[in-house]
Protein backbone atom coordinates (compact mmCIF):
# COMPACT_ATOMS: atom_id res chain seq x y z
CA UNK A 1 0.00 0.00 0.00
CA UNK A 2 1.09 3.49 -0.90
CA UNK A 3 2.82 5.60 1.82
CA UNK A 4 0.81 8.78 1.21
CA UNK A 5 -2.43 6.76 1.15
CA UNK A 6 -1.58 5.45 4.63
CA UNK A 7 -0.66 8.93 5.83
CA UNK A 8 -3.97 10.35 4.55
CA UNK A 9 -5.90 7.45 6.06
CA UNK A 10 -4.28 7.94 9.47
CA UNK A 11 -4.92 11.70 9.48
CA UNK A 12 -8.52 11.30 8.34
CA UNK A 13 -9.21 8.54 10.85
CA UNK A 14 -7.85 10.59 13.75
CA UNK A 15 -9.79 13.68 12.65
CA UNK A 16 -13.07 11.74 12.43
CA UNK A 17 -12.81 9.60 15.57
CA UNK A 18 -14.46 12.01 18.08
CA UNK A 19 -17.35 12.89 15.76
CA UNK A 20 -17.91 9.28 14.69
CA UNK A 21 -18.48 8.37 18.34
CA UNK A 22 -21.20 11.03 18.28
CA UNK A 23 -22.88 9.03 15.48
CA UNK A 24 -23.49 6.07 17.81
CA UNK A 25 -26.45 7.48 19.77
CA UNK A 26 -27.98 8.70 16.50
CA UNK A 27 -27.57 5.26 14.91
CA UNK A 28 -29.04 3.57 17.99
CA UNK A 29 -32.03 5.92 17.90
CA UNK A 30 -32.59 5.17 14.20
CA UNK A 31 -32.38 1.43 14.92
CA UNK A 32 -34.96 1.74 17.67
CA UNK A 33 -37.19 3.92 15.44
CA UNK A 34 -37.17 1.36 12.59
CA UNK A 35 -38.15 -1.46 14.93
CA UNK A 36 -40.87 0.57 16.65
CA UNK A 37 -42.30 1.46 13.20
CA UNK A 38 -42.90 -2.26 12.62
CA UNK A 39 -39.94 -3.32 10.49
CA UNK A 40 -38.49 -6.75 11.31
CA UNK A 41 -34.88 -6.98 12.51
CA UNK A 42 -33.75 -8.16 9.03
CA UNK A 43 -35.67 -5.36 7.28
CA UNK A 44 -34.21 -2.76 9.67
CA UNK A 45 -30.65 -3.97 9.08
CA UNK A 46 -31.41 -4.02 5.35
CA UNK A 47 -32.59 -0.42 5.48
CA UNK A 48 -29.44 0.65 7.32
CA UNK A 49 -27.24 -1.03 4.68
CA UNK A 50 -29.21 0.02 1.58
CA UNK A 51 -30.16 3.58 2.52
CA UNK A 52 -27.36 4.58 4.93
CA UNK A 53 -28.85 8.08 5.44
CA UNK A 54 -30.33 8.86 8.84
CA UNK A 55 -32.48 11.81 7.84
CA UNK A 56 -34.04 9.97 4.90
CA UNK A 57 -34.55 6.86 7.03
CA UNK A 58 -36.20 8.70 9.92
CA UNK A 59 -38.19 10.90 7.53
CA UNK A 60 -39.69 8.04 5.51
CA UNK A 61 -40.60 5.80 8.46
CA UNK A 62 -43.96 7.53 9.11
CA UNK A 63 -44.83 7.08 5.40
CA UNK A 64 -43.92 3.39 5.48
CA UNK A 65 -46.06 3.00 8.60
CA UNK A 66 -48.97 4.74 6.87
CA UNK A 67 -48.66 2.56 3.73
CA UNK A 68 -47.99 5.57 1.48
CA UNK A 69 -47.50 4.98 -2.29
CA UNK A 70 -43.97 4.16 -3.48
CA UNK A 71 -43.59 7.36 -5.54
CA UNK A 72 -44.41 9.58 -2.56
CA UNK A 73 -41.89 7.79 -0.35
CA UNK A 74 -39.28 8.08 -3.13
CA UNK A 75 -39.88 11.83 -3.63
CA UNK A 76 -39.78 12.50 0.11
CA UNK A 77 -36.49 10.63 0.46
CA UNK A 78 -35.10 12.53 -2.54
CA UNK A 79 -36.07 15.87 -1.00
CA UNK A 80 -34.58 14.93 2.37
CA UNK A 81 -31.34 13.88 0.64
CA UNK A 82 -31.18 16.83 -1.75
CA UNK A 83 -28.59 18.62 0.39
CA UNK A 84 -26.11 15.92 -0.66
CA UNK A 85 -26.21 17.20 -4.26
CA UNK A 86 -24.67 20.39 -2.89
CA UNK A 87 -22.00 18.44 -0.96
CA UNK A 88 -21.39 16.21 -4.00
CA UNK A 89 -20.88 19.20 -6.31
CA UNK A 90 -18.51 20.85 -3.85
CA UNK A 91 -16.44 17.66 -3.42
CA UNK A 92 -16.38 16.51 -7.07
CA UNK A 93 -13.02 18.17 -7.92
CA UNK A 94 -11.36 16.03 -5.20
CA UNK A 95 -12.26 12.87 -7.18
CA UNK A 96 -10.77 14.09 -10.43
CA UNK A 97 -9.26 11.06 -12.20
CA UNK A 98 -10.52 8.41 -9.74
CA UNK A 99 -11.97 5.16 -11.12
CA UNK A 100 -15.73 4.77 -11.64
CA UNK A 101 -16.14 2.15 -8.91
CA UNK A 102 -14.18 4.28 -6.46
CA UNK A 103 -16.41 7.29 -7.21
CA UNK A 104 -19.57 5.14 -6.85
CA UNK A 105 -18.39 3.91 -3.43
CA UNK A 106 -17.40 7.45 -2.45
CA UNK A 107 -20.89 8.67 -3.34
CA UNK A 108 -22.57 6.02 -1.20
CA UNK A 109 -20.31 6.91 1.76
CA UNK A 110 -20.68 10.72 1.58
CA UNK A 111 -22.38 11.55 4.92
CA UNK A 112 -22.79 15.02 6.47
CA UNK A 113 -20.00 14.74 9.05
CA UNK A 114 -17.52 13.57 6.45
CA UNK A 115 -18.19 16.61 4.28
CA UNK A 116 -18.07 18.99 7.23
CA UNK A 117 -14.72 17.73 8.53
CA UNK A 118 -12.85 16.66 5.41
CA UNK A 119 -14.01 18.79 2.44
CA UNK A 120 -11.65 21.72 3.00
CA UNK A 121 -8.42 19.70 3.20
CA UNK A 122 -9.52 17.27 0.46
CA UNK A 123 -9.98 20.11 -2.00
CA UNK A 124 -6.64 21.74 -1.12
CA UNK A 125 -4.46 18.60 -1.47
CA UNK A 126 -2.85 17.70 -4.81
CA UNK A 127 -1.89 14.08 -4.04
CA UNK A 128 -4.63 11.65 -5.22
CA UNK A 129 -3.31 8.81 -2.99
CA UNK A 130 -3.39 11.00 0.11
CA UNK A 131 -6.88 12.22 -0.85
CA UNK A 132 -8.24 8.69 -1.25
CA UNK A 133 -6.86 7.65 2.14
CA UNK A 134 -8.09 10.85 3.79
CA UNK A 135 -11.58 10.19 2.38
CA UNK A 136 -12.12 6.44 2.58
CA UNK A 137 -10.72 5.82 6.08
CA UNK A 138 -12.98 8.28 7.94
CA UNK A 139 -15.84 7.30 5.59
CA UNK A 140 -15.54 3.62 6.55
CA UNK A 141 -15.23 4.62 10.21
CA UNK A 142 -18.57 6.50 9.98
CA UNK A 143 -20.14 3.58 8.09
CA UNK A 144 -19.00 1.05 10.72
CA UNK A 145 -20.20 3.21 13.61
CA UNK A 146 -23.56 3.68 11.89
CA UNK A 147 -24.02 -0.05 11.21
CA UNK A 148 -22.87 -1.09 14.71
CA UNK A 149 -25.00 1.52 16.48
CA UNK A 150 -27.96 0.68 14.26
CA UNK A 151 -27.55 -3.02 15.03
CA UNK A 152 -27.48 -2.26 18.77
CA UNK A 153 -30.66 -0.21 18.43
CA UNK A 154 -32.41 -2.86 16.30
CA UNK A 155 -31.56 -5.71 18.66
CA UNK A 156 -32.04 -3.71 21.86
CA UNK A 157 -35.22 -1.90 20.79
CA UNK A 158 -37.37 -3.69 23.38
CA UNK A 159 -35.40 -2.55 26.45
CA UNK A 160 -35.94 1.21 25.84
CA UNK A 161 -39.19 2.57 27.30
CA UNK A 162 -41.34 3.85 24.43
CA UNK A 163 -42.24 7.16 26.10
CA UNK A 164 -38.71 8.44 26.65
CA UNK A 165 -38.75 10.86 23.67
CA UNK A 166 -35.63 9.11 22.31
CA UNK A 167 -36.24 10.59 18.84
CA UNK A 168 -34.88 13.89 20.25
CA UNK A 169 -31.40 12.31 20.13
CA UNK A 170 -31.52 12.92 16.35
CA UNK A 171 -31.79 16.68 16.88
CA UNK A 172 -29.04 16.62 19.52
CA UNK A 173 -26.72 14.79 17.09
CA UNK A 174 -27.37 17.39 14.38
CA UNK A 175 -26.72 20.22 16.88
CA UNK A 176 -23.41 18.68 17.95
CA UNK A 177 -22.38 18.84 14.28
CA UNK A 178 -23.60 22.42 13.80
CA UNK A 179 -22.10 24.15 16.85
CA UNK A 180 -18.41 24.10 15.82
CA UNK A 181 -19.33 25.43 12.35
CA UNK A 182 -21.08 28.62 13.43
CA UNK A 183 -18.09 30.24 15.14
CA UNK A 184 -17.62 32.26 11.95
CA UNK A 185 -20.16 35.09 11.64
CA UNK A 186 -21.30 34.52 8.01
CA UNK A 187 -21.77 30.82 8.85
CA UNK A 188 -23.90 31.79 11.86
CA UNK A 189 -26.06 34.00 9.62
CA UNK A 190 -26.51 31.11 7.15
CA UNK A 191 -27.55 28.80 9.99
CA UNK A 192 -29.97 31.24 11.64
CA UNK A 193 -31.66 32.22 8.37
CA UNK A 194 -31.72 28.62 7.12
CA UNK A 195 -33.29 27.35 10.32
CA UNK A 196 -35.86 30.11 10.71
CA UNK A 197 -36.59 29.89 6.96
CA UNK A 198 -37.40 26.19 7.31
CA UNK A 199 -39.70 27.00 10.26
CA UNK A 200 -41.52 29.79 8.42
CA UNK A 201 -41.80 27.86 5.14
CA UNK A 202 -42.98 24.60 6.77
CA UNK A 203 -46.37 24.93 5.01
CA UNK A 204 -44.85 24.07 1.60
CA UNK A 205 -45.91 20.63 0.29
CA UNK A 206 -43.73 17.48 0.43
CA UNK A 207 -41.49 18.92 3.18
CA UNK A 208 -40.02 21.28 0.58
CA UNK A 209 -39.79 23.88 3.37
CA UNK A 210 -36.50 22.32 4.49
CA UNK A 211 -35.01 22.69 1.00
CA UNK A 212 -36.33 26.25 0.64
CA UNK A 213 -34.91 27.15 4.06
CA UNK A 214 -31.48 25.76 3.10
CA UNK A 215 -31.49 27.82 -0.12
CA UNK A 216 -32.39 31.03 1.73
CA UNK A 217 -29.74 30.28 4.39
CA UNK A 218 -26.98 29.80 1.79
CA UNK A 219 -27.95 33.08 0.11
CA UNK A 220 -27.89 34.87 3.48
CA UNK A 221 -24.45 33.46 4.37
CA UNK A 222 -23.07 34.50 0.99
CA UNK A 223 -24.57 37.98 1.36
CA UNK A 224 -23.15 38.34 4.89
CA UNK A 225 -19.67 37.41 3.61
CA UNK A 226 -19.89 39.99 0.80
CA UNK A 227 -21.15 42.66 3.17
CA UNK A 228 -18.34 42.04 5.67
CA UNK A 229 -15.76 42.21 2.88
CA UNK A 230 -17.11 45.49 1.55
CA UNK A 231 -17.07 47.04 4.98
CA UNK A 232 -13.47 45.96 5.48
CA UNK A 233 -12.52 47.60 2.19
CA UNK A 234 -14.20 50.95 2.87
CA UNK A 235 -12.66 51.25 6.34
Amino acid sequence: MNESFKRGAREGFRLMLPMSVGLLPWAIVTGVAMRSTGLSAAESIGMNLIVYAGTAQLGTLPLIAAGAPLWLIFVTALVLNLRFVIFSAALAPAFHGASWSRRLLSGYLLVDGLFVLCADRLLRNDDPHWRWGFYVAPAMLCWSMWQLGGLAGVLGAEIFPKDWSLEFMTTIALMVMLVPMVKQRAMLVAALVGGLGAVLLRGLPLRLGVIAGIAVGIAAGFAAEHWAERRRRTW
Binding site: D112, M177, I214, G217
Partner: peptide, 14 residues
Protein backbone atom coordinates in the same frame (compact mmCIF):
# COMPACT_ATOMS: atom_id res chain seq x y z
CA UNK B 1 -22.71 27.67 3.65
CA UNK B 2 -24.83 24.64 2.69
CA UNK B 3 -23.95 22.36 5.63
CA UNK B 4 -24.66 24.99 8.31
CA UNK B 5 -27.91 26.04 6.63
CA UNK B 6 -29.00 22.41 6.12
CA UNK B 7 -28.27 21.24 9.66
CA UNK B 8 -30.06 24.26 11.10
CA UNK B 9 -33.03 23.75 8.74
CA UNK B 10 -33.43 20.25 10.23
CA UNK B 11 -32.82 21.33 13.85
CA UNK B 12 -34.87 24.50 14.25
CA UNK B 13 -38.25 23.11 13.19
CA UNK B 14 -37.87 20.40 15.83
Amino acid sequence: YAPAAALSALIMPD
